[in-house]
């Protein structure tokens, strides 16, 4: 390989002095070799090797302190989840319960699986762009952390909640923001507390419109467009095919008028590790 083709990152400067430098090459492995060529010696060595293994396991059985089992649900109190652990996506609210989301939609755009859907208030209280619902689909999330990385306002972070098992898949669709309304910066400019209150509308984790409904609307629009294309004979897919693929996307039939009838908001127990999407009042 010629020098001009070497990836520039392959030889970063500045570390050569610290590290011992390249050395070493191919070494033949033999490993702990048991020569079992002789007959009597073979039996003796074989038995010795077996006893060696039994010594290892015997040492552990003799010392119960080597047990590493954790008694999981009982040790919730002492369980320490690292702060960077990607459990449940959380939406940052400040001390007043205000968020900083400006609906720039970078996270929605960068999410590889489209597991974030943001809806905008039709008519903002203070500005044109105000957050209505920030919807996170845990069922589609791969926990790649990209949304957290790209958010310019540090609104998103991953919390430690890892106990996200539910019996109904639709319960994996969360609304993360505590209220629909303008950002903390705008609200703090309002001197009147009542004006602030009026600008905000509370949201809870399972309030509508859920992402499924939002997607259903998008799908309906796309189906219309596809039908129009098919009528002109330019679409790759037949409307029937579209119907089929649409049916596979959603667990519930579309379209649903009004809020999708998800089961009533399950009271999320506030135990450590549970999904605490509603951590603001």
């Amino acid at each position: 390989m010629s020098d001009d083709l070497v990836h520039p990152a392959a030889t970063p400067a500045g570390t050569a002095a610290l590290l011992p430098g390249p050395s070493g090459g191919a070494v033949a492995v033999a490993g702990p070799w048991l020569d079992t060529a002789g007959s009597v010696g073979a039996v003796r060595k074989g038995i010795a090797s077996l006893l060696g293994g039994m010594r290892v396991t015997g040492r552990y059985v003799a010392r119960p302190s080597t047990v590493v089992t954790q008694h999981y649900p009982e040790n919730r109190e002492t369980l320490r989840v690292p702060e960077r652990f990607r459990g449940a996506l959380r939406f940052h609210h400040d001390a007043d319960g205000y968020h900083g989301c400006t609906v720039c939609r970078i996270c929605e755009d960068q999410c590889p699986n489209r597991s974030i859907v943001i809806t905008q208030r039709e008519k903002g209280a203070l500005t044109k762009k105000e957050l209505d619902t920030f919807i996170w689909r845990l069922d589609a999330c791969t926990f790649c952390n990209t949304c957290v990385m790209v958010c310019p306002f540090n609104v998103l972070h991953f919390g430690p909640g890892f106990e996200s098992a539910v019996y109904d898949r639709r319960l994996l669709v969360y609304t993360l923001n505590g209220y629909a309304g303008p950002t903390a910066a705008l609200l703090n400019k309002q001197a009147d507390p009542d004006a602030r209150k009026a600008a905000c509308e509370p949201r809870d984790p399972f309030c509508g419109p859920t992402v499924l409904q939002a997607l259903a609307e998008k799908r309906a629009a796309r189906r219309k467009a596809a039908e129009a294309e098919a009528a002109q004979g330019v679409g790759l897919k037949s409307p029937a095919a579209f119907e089929k693929s649409a049916a596979r996307t959603a667990p519930d039939p579309v379209p649903v008028p009004g809020p999708v009838p998800v089961p009533a908001p399950v009271p999320v127990p506030t135990q450590p590790g549970s999904v605490e999407a509603a951590d603001v009042g």
Binding site: K218, L236, K237, K244, S245
Partner: peptide, 11 residues
Amino acid sequence: DYADDFMLERP
């Protein structure tokens, strides 16, 4: 240009 009935449209 591959397409089949089961392909999900990328939103």
